[in-house]
């Protein structure tokens, strides 16, 4: 296993450096434009979370551990879940039913970035949740990988 992961391999590192901004920007684009163009929170979130994998591939385990805070990611995911439920609860606060898109008429016209009411916000919270969640999951798996490498050495 450890043969395949050469931490100081320049090509991998450069490629990671190159693709990371693209992944971040593109992922965020997909999340934010979920209601306008193909894609959405789930897809965009996974693309953003690819950044974690890229950091790991390019810089190895220690850097990944230093850069990302596992607990923070987990907490953010929980927070995003609460956020989603909160937007769903907005319906009840506004006197309609759960999950009601109460903000649809209060935000811009169809086609604008800030339009479509809670759809935008729910999309955003799902995207946030997925990116933190998948990132967290990747970190756990890298942790396992490290243990395994240590054992085999």
């Amino acid at each position: 296993m450890d043969k395949n992961i050469k931490v100081k391999n320049v090509i991998v590192k450069t490629a990671a450096d190159f693709f990371m901004p693209i992944a971040l920007i593109f992922g965020l684009y997909v999340i934010l434009h979920g209601h306008l163009s193909p894609g959405g929170g789930f897809q965009g979130g996974v693309i953003v979370a690819a950044a974690v994998v890229l950091v790991y591939l390019g810089y190895g385990h220690e850097t990944t551990e230093n850069v990302f805070n596992e607990n923070l990611l987990k907490k953010s995911e929980t927070f995003a879940a609460i956020m989603y439920a909160g937007f769903a609860f907005l319906g009840i606060f506004y006197g309609a039913n759960f999950c009601r898109n109460v903000l649809a008429d209060k935000m811009g016209a169809a086609g604008e970035l800030f339009s479509s009411g809670t759809i935008f916000w729910m999309n955003f919270s799902v995207g946030f949740k997925v990116l933190t969640g998948i990132g967290f999951l990747s970190l756990i798996f890298f942790g396992l990988l490290k243990e395994k490498n240590n054992e085999s050495k």
Binding site: K74, K75, T78, A81, I82, A85, A88, F89, I92, N97
Partner: peptide, 25 residues
């Protein structure tokens, strides 16, 4: 009365999230 079932369900889920957030320590 209509809102009771959904709140009963979501309270349990929210309990999970909040206990994950604040009950860390």
């Amino acid at each position: 009365t209509n809102h009771l079932p959904i709140i009963a369900i979501q309270v349990l889920f929210l309990g999970a999230f909040i206990s994950g957030l604040v009950g860390y320590k």
